[in-house]
């Protein structure tokens, strides 16, 4: 190298700066998961699907706002958006959960994570939290749009306040849906290393009982069978809890409301425990 060269190889530099611990690493993993869910920082191909779903759910909200502005009728209440969009949310999760979880199994990336200062349970919970947040945002975002449209059209402070309360209720329902849907999806996805297989399995788990439940509801009439049948479907379970919480009438659950809440808690807890167990046992 000549003396006039301006390029210097400064060699290897040791790092003496801050090393943020486990909590920071878990947050980094959560953020990464959330970005992956919406295809951010990835190829255009990876963005297409999540944003089509986001666009469709948003379109629902836009139509609702437009209808309300034109006719003054509440065509889609906040709390009903999750159930109307539930199929889209499910499809979103069927694609995104394997993207977050199965991909690491498939690529054998887990040893790289587990050789860093996090626990296996941290990994599992960060992925679950990312999936929960992504699916919640998918519903809560359009609900916010609904609110913006409605509050603008009511014009009065009291009206806007009532709308805000309605939106918060809608967010709670969205969280219910997101919790049940994402806990089941992440568990199913963590068991399959092939993404296509995992996606299929998620749809099957949610849909396999739905026709039977639908049949039981229509056959059961006013009997207890019809009121209990939705318990068997994770797809309808959060709607049952919503009916109990907000006295809605979208599902005939009678006085079994608390049972729906209990089953929801148990299902979510069981899925989370199994997920933790899965990652404790996963071979590296």
């Amino acid at each position: 190298m000549s003396d006039t060269s301006v390029i210097h190889d400064i060699g290897y530099q040791r790092y003496a700066g801050a090393r943020l611990g486990r909590a920071y690493a878990v947050r980094a993993l959560f953020e990464h998961g959330l970005r992956v869910a919406f295809g951010l920082g990835r190829s255009a191909k990876a963005k297409i699907f999540p944003w089509i779903v986001v666009g469709l759910v948003t379109l629902l909200a836009v139509i609702a706002v437009a209808v309300r502005a034109q006719t003054g009728e509440t065509f889609l209440p906040y709390q009903e958006l999750p159930s109307v969009a539930s199929l889209l949310v499910l499809v979103f999760l069927a694609v995104v959960a394997p993207e977050l979880v199965s991909r690491d199994l498939r690529n054998q990336t887990l040893p790289l994570y587990f050789s860093r200062p996090i626990k296996r349970s941290d990994y599992a919970l960060a992925k679950f939290a990312a999936l929960f947040t992504a699916s919640w945002l998918l519903m809560a975002g359009p609900q916010l749009l609904l609110f913006a449209g409605s509050a603008f059209s009511t014009g009065t402070g009291a009206g806007a306040w009532a709308e805000a309360r309605g939106m918060l209720g809608g967010w709670v329902v969205s969280a219910l849906y997101a919790l049940v849907f994402s806990s089941v999806s992440v568990l199913v996805a963590s068991l399959a290393s092939r993404r296509a297989f995992a996606a299929g399995a998620i749809v099957v788990v949610f849909m396999v009982t739905t026709p039977v439940v639908g049949l039981l509801i229509s056959l059961g009439g006013d009997g207890n069978l019809a009121k209990l049948a939705p318990l068997a479907s994770p797809f309808l379970l959060p709607e049952g809890v919503r009916v109990w919480l907000y006295h809605a009438d979208s599902l005939p659950i009678g006085s079994f409301g608390p049972l729906y809440a209990l089953v929801t808690v148990l299902l979510t807890a069981a899925c989370t425990l199994l997920l933790l167990l899965r990652y404790r046992k996963v071979s590296l």
């Binding site: 790092y15 700066g17 801050a18 090393r19 943020l20 611990g21 486990r22 920071y24 690493a25 980094a28 993993l29 990464h32 920082g41 990835r42 190829s43 990876a46 991909r103 690491d104 690529n107 054998q108 990336t109 040893p111 790289l112 994570y113 860093r116 200062p117 996090i118």
Partner: peptide
């Protein structure tokens, strides 16, 4: 052990953050 669809610089950055940087 590498994800084929990620950019190398992005992936190594992610792993650095996982180590607390």
């Amino acid at each position: 052990c590498l994800p084929p669809d990620m950019i190398a610089a992005e992936f190594v950055t992610h792993m650095a953050r996982m180590s607390g940087l």
